[in-house]
Design a protein around this nucleic acid. Sequence first.
RNA 1: GCCGGUAUCGUCUAGGGGUUAGGACGGUUGGUUCUCAGCCAUCAAACCGGGGUUCGAAUCCCCGUACCGGUACCA
Length: 498
Amino acid sequence: MRLRFAPSPTGQLHVGNARTALFNWLLAAGQGGTFILRIEDTDLERSSRESEQAILEDLRWMGLDWTEGIEAGGDHGPYRQTERLHMYRAYAVELLSSGAAYHCFCSAEQLEADRQAALAAGRPPKYAGRCRSLSRDEARRRIDGGEKAVIRFRVPEGHRDIVFNDLVRGEVRFSTEVIGDPVLVRSDGIPAYNYAVVIDDALMEITHVIRGEDHISNTPRQLLLYEAFGWRPPIFAHVSLVMGPDHSPLSKRHGATSVAEFRARGYLPEALTNYLALIGWSPGADEEVLPISELATRFRIEDVGHSAGVFDVEKLAWVNRHYLKAAAPARLAQLAIPYLRQAGWVSELMDRDLTYLESVIPIAAASVDRLEQIPARLSFLFDYSADRSLQNGSIAQEAHESAAVIESLARELETSAPLLDRDAFRAMAKRVQQSSGAKGKALFHPIRLALTGEAEGIELDIAVPAIERGAQLSQSGIRRIVSAGKRAAEFAAALRSR
RNA sequence: GCCGGUAUCGUCUAGGGGUUAGGACGGUUGGUUCUCAGCCAUCAAACCGGGGUUCGAAUCCCCGUACCGGUACCA
């Protein structure tokens, strides 16, 4: 079994395409097949090496590795279409000499006029066949005379149905009546998509073509080409497209659409792939959050749904949270650094000593949708200011009402040992309760205000040890970190002076 | 216009001639003697419409409607 993903390097990898790539990968991985990566860069104006590199990077990031293709090599190369031009040319000559293809000299204006006329008459707007019966000599003469020509495929005379059994859609039938002679090679000698795919898929011995539904009506044209060459076509599977919340094709106005954007926002690759697999497919047994390897063993292309699916950012966030909680602290710390650096909270020194970050990151990661939100979640550690907090009306009011608790807290922390675990924190809170008389919400809320400067957020018995640990590293690059005791004192002083 | 495809809670889906139509995300309400989150529990929420076949249709068939794709010297 040989499968391929064949993106055009004309921009970022779209999540819809990423999903198609994933389905190919899943099938290959689950069946012990080969996953091949080919680059379809025949659109010279829009293709770029930068996009190509970006796409490879995104694919690798998602874990969709390929063992054959671009940068991996293999026996069926080259894997970039612009490097296969000689092959397309050779097969075009073959088609030309057998009469299965012919030169066409029609101008763009003429073609457009024909199209409009056909449309107006309610006929399928296919190529009218003006150059179909030009003799080879005539064509030769005009080409020698300097005229530009495209090479068109001659769709066989007489109406018949082209039928193929699509693995996700079942039997699909098209009449040749509505198929105009497709352009194989453009006037600049570059092959058109419908031609290049056939040559490549055949030569690369692709057995299963899983692609977007937007290609389904190209399939009969391609089948005709396989037939003309006497080649056995691959098995096709056309998967539906991914839509935005308004049920129109997912695009920029819906927000992030490319893999790169999701990565930049701090989604984990395993979360994105897991979620993408869930659009239009179900692993069954009421389970959804599964590692990619498990997805691969369960995946059957026949089980992919027929209808287009809406991309649900909320559910993606949920899946991501799941993986965030499961991720190793060291990995999270490493991944969070760019975001913290952007917020200005991490120095070079910090990069060298990740111990503190590693102890603190899981606290934030457990209650955040994406890595991008970690700095905000951790601002109580890096950006504490008693004065600023008290400028908030509701916080100030609450603090004043609880002044007794806060004073008691400040005294308690001044003398107590560092609170490095939950038990120590609980014991401390108990003592504050005894001296202030407050309990429950009236006790813990003021403590939070004083220590984090925020009215809500992290669980206190986790946050306090984090603050204490931060204090030990305060001189090595973390700004504004103070011990819990100093914070409480600072807050109490600020409160008194108001 | 023409050709093709699709249709189960708001969303992703399971199921499929007789079911209390199941799950997940999101939402509701309550619990977890501090908060967001989490977790537990709870509730609300669906078979596009119309015909036909049948004892019985959400399921099979037809028609309609809506949506998506194609209709390129773009892929």
